[in-house]
């Protein structure tokens, strides 16, 4: 019995939907982070792939396997989805060797998401560091989308990288900077000859920017060391643990809470996460 592939993928969460790589953007000087823009081969799949910022998907490559990657595009961007991937393991290395026009697979969207309903009507402070900025970018683009902007209050962004060459989405950063409705603070640990922006670590910049806790939520994503030093800043500013939200990373395979490896306490990061508030994380065991 032959069934069309999109129908199989709709019924079977393990079956990837075919996508074509329509654009590859090298994001950083070191060339080990690229953004892949993918377009669905089947219209039906595109319809079905309705995602919310903060979700992820399993990218599937011939003979290499799958890798869970956060979705970097925003659902407001139609016709494609984007993933920003660092070259690290078997799958991501193979991804980096691909050319535009390649066919591959995508499975998802998976996981919960940034809590959009909870964020609505509030002032949002987005804090990101280095490569972990991807799903935050998705969130920002979602919030500043014309029809959505009024649903959110003041948007403050603090984004840092080690050097100017390691900042992701440089064109977008520039465009956001020109908008009047977003307080953008881009910083690098150490600038170079051409860098005219801010220098300093993310926690320090957060302290300087000092967003008000009034009706505000912080969404934070970055390397563990950045998180460790940034959280106290927000505690000092009076943010409660319910109002600090972050996203976890774990080794995953199935992405749907079956294979057992992203199990943290009674939760599965793939299915119950990856997004948790600090208050929720406090209830989990520290095994991530």
């Amino acid at each position: 019995m032959q069934k069309p592939l999109h129908q199989i993928a709709a019924e079977n969460p393990y079956v990837p939907m075919p996508v074509e790589v329509i654009k590859i953007i090298t994001e950083v000087d070191t060339k080990d982070i690229k953004t892949f823009r993918l377009a669905f081969v089947n219209k039906e799949d595109e319809e079905r792939f309705r995602y919310i910022p903060g979700q992820f998907a399993e990218l599937s490559l011939y003979g290499r396997g799958e890798s869970p990657i956060g979705i970097a595009s925003s659902p407001t961007q139609k016709g494609y989805i984007e993933f920003t991937v660092q070259k690290a393991g078997v799958v991501t290395t193979a991804l980096h060797e691909m050319e535009e026009g390649t066919l591959m697979g995508v499975r998802g969207p998976l996981g919960n998401s940034w809590p959009i309903e909870f964020l609505e009507g509030k002032n949002i402070v987005v804090v990101g560091g280095g490569f972990a900025f991807t799903t935050l970018r998705s969130l920002i683009n979602y919030m500043i989308f014309e029809e959505n902007r009024k649903r959110f209050g003041k948007i403050t962004v603090v984004y840092g990288a080690r050097s100017p060459g390691l900042l992701l989405y440089k064109d977008e950063l520039e465009a956001w900077g020109k908008r009047g409705d977003i307080d953008l603070n881009v910083t690098v640990d150490k600038g170079d000859a051409t860098w005219k922006g801010r220098e300093g670590f993310v926690p320090t910049v957060c302290k300087e920017v000092a967003p008000s806790r009034e009706n505000a939520v912080t969404v934070i994503c970055g390397p563990p060391i950045m998180i460790r030093f940034t959280l106290p800043v927000f505690f000092d500013l009076g943010f409660s643990k319910e109002n600090i939200i972050t996203s976890l990373e774990m080794r995953m395979k199935c992405g749907i809470g079956k294979c057992g490896r992203c199990n943290v306490g009674s939760k599965y990061v793939c299915k119950d996460g990856p997004v948790f508030s600090l208050a929720e994380l406090d209830k989990l065991t520290k095994e991530y």
Partner: peptide
Amino acid sequence: HCFDISDE
């Protein structure tokens, strides 16, 4: 029931 997924 833990499992791994691999490609060959």
